[in-house]
Amino acid sequence: MNIKPLADRVVVKMVESEETTKSGIVLPGSAKEKPQIAEVVAVGPGTVQDGKEVKMEVKVGDKVIISKYSGTEVKFNNEEYTILKQGDILAIVE
């Protein structure tokens, strides 16, 4: 069984952030921010909005930057994913 997003939704898996700063300071769990870089694992087929087709700009495997605290977090097969609308994706990391 897989997660298959509907309409203009995208399933992403958050990329783990480093636990130490560039200067070597180790950050405790409470000091870390929620990561904003994620990898796309599934993409919906797109949608029609105001009579115009909205095509999907991302594809599986893309690394993306998402809005902080966007989407819905789900646990599936002991893995944590976030399901969000394509509009919550800010950029593709190349």
Score class of each variant (00 low, 15 high):
Q49Y: 05
N77I: 08
R9Y: 02
S67N: 14
Q36T: 13
K55W: 00
T21G: 03
N77D: 15
E39K: 14
R9I: 00
M14V: 10
V41I: 10
R9W: 02
P35V: 11
E79C: 10
K68F: 08
D8F: 00
E16C: 01
I3R: 02
K52F: 07
K13L: 11
V93Q: 13
T72D: 13
V54T: 08
E57Y: 12
K13G: 06
E73Q: 14
Y81V: 02
T82K: 13
N2H: 11
E53K: 15
K85N: 00
T20D: 13
E16F: 02
E53I: 14
K13D: 10
T72W: 09
P35A: 15
Q49N: 05
V41L: 04
N78K: 13
T20C: 14
G29I: 02
L27T: 06
A31M: 11
E79A: 12
K32S: 00
K85D: 01
E80W: 06
V10A: 01
V10P: 00
L90P: 04
V93D: 11
T20G: 12
M14A: 13
G46L: 06
Y69S: 11
K4A: 01
K55M: 07
E94V: 09
Y81W: 05
V11G: 00
I3M: 08
Q36V: 12
K85Q: 01
A91G: 04
E19D: 07
P28V: 14
K85A: 00
M14R: 11
P35Y: 12
G87W: 09
I37Y: 15
I25D: 13
N2V: 08
G46W: 04
E33I: 05
S17E: 09
V11D: 00
E73N: 12
G24I: 03
V43H: 00
V48P: 06
I65R: 10
K63G: 04
V58P: 01
A31G: 07
G44M: 07
G29P: 11
V93Y: 11
I83A: 04
G61W: 10
Q86T: 01
G87V: 13
L84V: 02
V48M: 12
